[in-house]
Amino acid sequence: MTTSDRLAELRKSYERAELSEEASHADPLQQFDQWLTEAIAGEVPEPNAMTLATVGHDLRPSTRVVLIKGCDARGIVWYTNYESQKGQELAGNPYAALQFHWVELERVVRIEGRVEKTSAAESDAYYATRPLDSRIGAWASPQSQVIPGRAVLVASAAKFGAQFLLNPPRPPNWGGYRLVPDRWQFWQGRRSRLHDRLRYTRAGDGWVRERLAP
């Protein structure tokens, strides 16, 4: 049997939970907070991992996994190198999409909206909480650029480690992004592929909640 044959035979029946309009929150942020809390409590592997999708000037989409580091009424926050591929793409097109997939809970959350940089003060505050090796790594890695080998990174980390010792400042090309949601989708796996799928769309100061066919 080929790998393709095995893939075609893979099946799973989703039966853990349901998502109804009556039981869900009217505010998508509250619904997200509930699901994220349940993912953490359920010890889902890396519940804070999310796929970030951006689109470049050539209109080609690209994705990568980043870690959520903040979530409130202002939006969803993560931190990265502003000169990376995603940073360059966001500079040209400040709209993006995020997706969380909590496999063990049979849940997916999709979030879309405009992206802005966090303030320098917010970036400084988060950077200061990072382990020393991670702070040095932010200086050492020319993220998304071609390098001849790993030795370049090791040498760069050693150089900046010797330069800054225990107190590296935040690199000027490193900081936070905040996605300000205008669309949310919550997907709960159900039997017979008749999944529950609720979409929230921004309407003025509130949200319109609608059920979508799976």
Rank of each mutant, 00 (worst) to 15 (best):
Ser20Asp: 09
Glu21Ala: 13
Leu29Tyr: 09
Trp35Ile: 06
Thr37Val: 00
Thr37Phe: 01
Ala39Met: 08
Ala39Ser: 10
Pro45Val: 11
Asn48Met: 14
Thr54Lys: 07
Val55Thr: 13
His57Asn: 12
Ser62Glu: 11
Arg64Val: 11
Leu67His: 07
Cys71Leu: 15
Gly75Gln: 09
Tyr79Asn: 05
Asn81Met: 07
Asn81His: 15
Ser84Val: 09
Lys86Tyr: 10
Gly87Ile: 09
Leu90Ala: 06
Ala96Tyr: 00
Gln99Leu: 12
Phe100Ser: 02
Glu104Ala: 15
Val108Ser: 09
Val109Gln: 01
Arg110Cys: 06
Glu112Val: 00
Arg114Met: 08
Val115Ile: 03
Lys117Phe: 05
Ser119Glu: 05
Ser119Ile: 10
Ala120Val: 12
Ala120Thr: 11
Ala120Lys: 08
Ala121Asn: 05
Ala121Leu: 12
Glu122Phe: 09
Asp124Arg: 07
Ala125Gly: 07
Arg130Gly: 12
Asp133Cys: 11
Ser134Val: 12
Ser134Pro: 08
Arg135Gly: 05
Ile136Met: 08
Ala140Lys: 06
Gln143Pro: 12
Ile147Gln: 13
Ala151Val: 10
Val152Gly: 02
Leu153Thr: 13
Leu153Pro: 11
Ser156Tyr: 03
Ser156Trp: 01
Leu165Tyr: 00
Asn167Thr: 14
Pro168Phe: 05
